[in-house]
Structures are given as C-alpha cells and as structure tokens.
Design a protein around this nucleic acid. Structure first.
Length: 557
RNA sequence: GCGCUUGUAGCUCAACGGAUAGAGCGCAGCCCUGCGAAGGCUGAGGUUGUGGGUUCAAUUCCCGCCAAGCGCGCCA
C-alpha cells in the first residue's frame, strides 16, 4: 500500500474513533486528501481534515486535530504527527522506514513505481487517429505524446491497456485524398492537372503520388474507371498508413491495434447499430437523410446519420458504432479518447447516445488537448493539411530529436493553449529541460562506472549512514515516484511526470555537488557504499520515468 | 449570437480548495589543479485579466465583464 493510502486510512479510523461519542459516522466524513505540503517545514505529508470538520463537529479545529492525533496509533512509517494552526495535521516520515524503502527501489529495479497488485480492468486508449490522408504534422504530435505516455502510466498500474488507432478510411476525406493523388499523378506524368479547394496540397501527397505513379504508369488518368480510382485511393492510403506508422515510431509510439472504420461497415455492425437506434425511436427521415434526435437528448441540434446525397454514413454514425463496439462488443471496462479540442462538440452527443444504447457514459473519458497553433508564420495560425502549411513530425524530429519534442509537449497540461514560435522551438532545443534530466542520469551512471574500478559492492551497504539534508530529501523524492504514477493514473494529468522528473533531477544535481560519493580513503568505505546505494536508486527511478515517457536514459552524453 | 476551454514573472509553463504562488529560459553576479560545469549558488522580477460572491482558507469553486482559442456542416 502507498504511504498516502496508509495515512488516509489511519486518519479516517482515528477520526471515527475520536468522535465516536458524538455519533460521528463514516458518512459524516468529507472527502479529504493526504497532501504533500509545499513547505518541508510542515513535514512530509499533511491533511486539513480537522479544518473541514470544524463546522460539522462545531468545535475548534485545533481541538479536533488534537483529538484525532491522540487516536492515531504508533506507526512504523511515522516518526512524528503534529498539530499546526489553524488546524493542520502534519506527518513526518520515520527515518528508519524511509531508509528501508530505499532498499526496495534497488530490489524492484525496473519495476519500481509499478503496481504489484494485478488489475482485471481493461482500458482502451484511443489516440492519434488522424485521417490517413498525409503525414503527421506538428498539430498531431500533442495528442500522440499524451496518449502514449498515458497508456504507459496505466499499464504501470497494472491495467490491461490496448493502444488503438482508429483509421477513418471510409469517409469523404478519403475521396478528396484520392482525387488529390490523381491530380498529382497527372502532374508527374506531365498532363494537365488542377487542385481545388478540397484537395490536399502538401508535399507528402506528392511523395505518395510519386510512388503510385510508377505502379500505375500505363493507365490513362483522364478517363479513369471507378474501380481504378478506388484502387489508387486504397494504395495511397496503405502508403500513407506506413508513413504514419514510421512517424509514430520516430516518437517511440506503437499502437497495439489499428481499427478500420470500413470494417464497421463491412461487418454490418454499423447497420446493426443504426437498427438499434431506429428501434429506440431515436431516428427520423427528413430531406432524404436519416437523422438522430440528439436535440431531444440534450444536444444543441439533431444530427445526420445517413447522408441524402450518397446514402453513406456520416462520421458521427460510424463513430457511434465504433464506440458501441468498444464497450459492448469488445467489452472494455473503460475507454479513454485523446482528442483535439476541435472535437469537443462531439463529446456531449457521443455520451448522450451511448447512454441511450445502454452504455454508461462514465466508461468513456475524453481527454481533450487544445489545438497547437503557430505564431508569426505569415499569419498562418493553424496547420492545414489541405493547404499544405504543415510542419511534419518527421522533419522536426530530424532537427531537434524525439526526446526534446516529447518533453516540450508533455510538460504542459493538455488544457493549455499552446502557441509555438517554431523558430524559438527549434533554436531552444539544445536548452530543452530534457537534457538537464538526462544529464542527471548520465552523471549517476558515470559514478557507478567509476565505482567498478574500486571494486565496491553495495550488496551490504547500510542506508542508515545517509543523513545529510541533501541525501534525505533526495530519498524522499524517490519514494514519491509510486505515488506519482498512482495519482496520474486517476487524474490523467501527464504533465506531472516531466515536472517530477525535473524536480528529481534538480535534487540529484544538488546531491552530487554537495556529497562526494566515491571516497578513496578505505576508512570511509561504508559511507561510499551507502552513497552508491542512493546513486543507484536515483538512477533506477529516473530511468524508469524516462522510459515511461519514452525518452532515452543515456549512460553518457 | 450561443456553447466549450483558457487568461499566473519579460517569455514558455506548473501549482490534487490549504500554510511564504513555483520551475525553465532570459537578465545581474559568484563557484571547477576531487566521481562529467549540459552543473551548483546569490539576486532582481507577481495586485494570479477584471469586479463581485461562497469558504476558517480561493490561482483553484460560483456569477458578471474584458480578451484569446475552438466549436455551432448531409467534413472528419
């Protein structure tokens, strides 16, 4: 059990015991948290429960805190529990327990931070899911990085995680994509060509067209058959998906499953879903289209499911089927969709419809990330695939590296609106905080390398010798790591990870500056061993975290 | 116009309703003849957009206003 959980339980039962005579029951207890005070003078953990109880119990919060404190049994984890005005209960971890935990880091190694208990919960994380109509660009990177990191965190907490990419291969955009390819193929051939408003104009399309043009070089592109057109489109899509996979791989991102929208249509799952909606009296026909009564459910307006013009399903229709498939067919306990904020209007109606299909909407969590915009590039505030005003992920990674990219995007809360000045972004890459973190790792690695020359074994090292403030504060930081992963698995706020990595690295650097680890004087061999223990634990923790964030843990830089 | 989201140091951003609002970059200085100076240490820099409200306690919750982003397609 995590220390915060132990404390929470302890405080809970202590407060129930303390006010038993006042008929104080568990249901009177408000939601309270065990927090880490910002100021270390207030101890390692604290709770403001006494303040929250002041009104319910009609008592002075200090008195309440004292009563709870008196009811807290002696714990091996806690050295001191004190009452502070205006009514906080502060805990100081016991030195003995802290040092014992340090040995656990060494024992757990790459598993340190992960949860040992097995969870039966299946969670599907859907992220990226960009239309296969071109390369990934800067605007797609944020969701990709957040989604992959989040998946890793959930997996570390022992959930069964499926990382999924939903491929929109059935809609109208595919048609536009095919037409764009065709025009580019004509261009390559030297024929007359023209690109309209709905066509994709980027260099990535040219790149794909170049490949396909070779494969279809004998065809007459001006009077092309329907079959040939869909063949070209399909081939273009295949190439495109390979490109996307390669771009994602450059960011160390790998999906477990690629789910094709078209499969919902082929398998009749879409029809079945539509029938279900019809049977629930949720649809009606108007102007030759099939509509869904989402307004009645609480949305702004009704939506079209089947278009009048070609009798094909809208994106919303297949997405309903897709989400029904996640929860009903494949029985994921939870689904997390990482979407760009431009889809936020879609969230409400999806949840409303899911409820109508008998699926509890709380099983779906949509993590929106705000659109990334570019600053000061000829007034182009947004990326547009159609206009070809994109900065490709591939190019950016070649320039500044995957780690720096990942850090920059992960470091911000998904709700923050990012406005990137691409020139600064590029120029600042060498000052990216990720190198500060990696340098801390390299330094620890370097010390461990040196220790080999002195043939020092740390198997019998005594953690009790570690007692300087810099050593203690570093150990405590290491012990926060499992708490961090557990918390993020609930809050989904992945920006806490790089923040912690930065704090940990800072303490590592300070420890390094203030404590000589390898002392060649044989008299001090025990101290050397103890410090090497801490070096190793620091390296393990930092490396585990970097690994989780899909960044390198360099031994040398 | 309506809806969703955001507004914190010069810049980019943190802060689970808590105690003195923090980092990085930038700026002014200081520290290597000891494990890696891609480092450490000082310092300057804030009325948390604004006006109310709730609370023992508000950057955080609620309401108004101002500003920005996104959405309001038989596009996805």
């Amino acid at each position: 059990m995590l220390i915060s959980e132990i404390l929470h339980k302890t405080v809970e039962s202590a407060s129930l015991a303390a006010f038993k005579d006042k008929n104080f029951q568990k249901e009177n207890l408000p939601n309270f948290i065990i927090e880490k005070p910002k100021n270390i003078a207030f101890g390692d953990y604290a709770t403001s429960l006494p303040l929250q109880l002041a009104k319910t119990l009609d008592q002075n919060p200090i008195k309440i805190a004292e009563a709870i404190n008196n009811a807290i049994p002696k714990l091996k984890e806690i050295e001191l529990c004190s009452v502070e005005p205006p009514g906080f209960l502060n805990f100081k971890l016991s030195q003995e327990w802290i040092e014992k935990q340090l040995l656990k880091v060494l024992k757990d190694k790459e598993k340190y931070g992960s949860k040992a208990e097995v969870s039966s919960k299946n969670i599907q994380v859907e992220f990226v899911s960009v239309n296969p109509t071109g390369r990934l660009h800067l605007g797609h990177m944020r969701g990709a990085i957040i989604g992959s990191t989040l998946s890793n965190v959930l997996q570390s907490q022992n959930y069964n995680v499926i990382r999924e990419y939903y491929v929109n291969d059935a809609g109208n955009q595919m048609n536009n994509f095919g037409k764009s390819l065709l025009e580019r193929m004509k261009e390559i051939k030297g024929d007359k060509f023209s690109l309209g408003e709905n066509h994709y104009k980027g260099d990535d399309i040219k790149e794909i067209a170049l490949t396909i043009a070779k494969e279809f070089k004998d065809e007459d592109l001006d009077s092309i058959s329907k079959d040939l057109f869909s063949l070209i489109t399909k081939r273009g899509m295949e190439i495109c998906i390979e490109m996307i996979k390669s771009d994602l791989s450059d960011l160390n991102i790998h999906h477990d499953n690629w789910f094709y929208e078209s499969s919902l249509i082929k398998s009749n799952y879409l029809d079945e879903t539509l029938t279900k909606l019809k049977d629930s009296n949720l649809t009606y026909e108007k102007d030759g289209a099939l509509w869904i009564k989402t307004k009645e459910l609480g949305d702004e307006r009704d939506n079209v499911l089947i278009k009048s013009i070609d009798k094909k399903p809208t994106y919303f229709a297949t997405d309903i089927a897709y989400h029904r498939n996640k929860f009903e067919e494949r029985k994921f306990d939870e689904g997390i969709d990482v979407w760009g904020a431009d889809h936020h209007g879609h969230v409400k109606r999806m949840k409303l419809v899911l409820e109508k299909l008998g699926i509890e909407s709380s099983r779906l969590t949509v993590l929106l990330n705000q659109i990334v915009s570019l600053k000061d590039i000829d007034g182009a505030a947004r990326f547009s695939k159609r206009e070809g005003t994109s900065i490709f992920i591939k190019d950016l990674i070649n320039e500044i590296g995957s780690d720096a990219c990942r850090f920059s995007f992960l470091n911000r809360s998904s709700e923050s609106q990012m406005e990137i000045d691409i020139n600064i972004f590029r120029k600042k890459s060498s000052e990216n905080p990720v190198f500060y973190i990696q340098y801390a790792h390299a330094r620890m690695s370097s010390i461990l390398r040196s220790s080999i020359y002195f043939d020092i074994s740390i198997t019998d090292a005594d953690p009790n010798l570690l007692s300087t403030p810099g050593e203690i504060i570093l150990i405590k930081k290491l012990l926060e790591y499992p708490e961090l992963l557990n918390r993020v698995s609930y809050t989904l706020q992945v920006q806490e990870l790089p923040a912690y990595a930065l704090e940990l690295s800072q303490l590592i650097h300070k420890f390094y500056e203030n404590n000589r680890v390898i002392d060649e004087d044989i008299k001090n061999i025990e101290m050397t061993k103890s410090r090497l223990l801490l070096v190793k634990a620091s390296k393990i923790t930092l490396s585990n975290l970097l690994n989780l964030m899909e960044m390198e843990s360099p031994e040398k830089m």
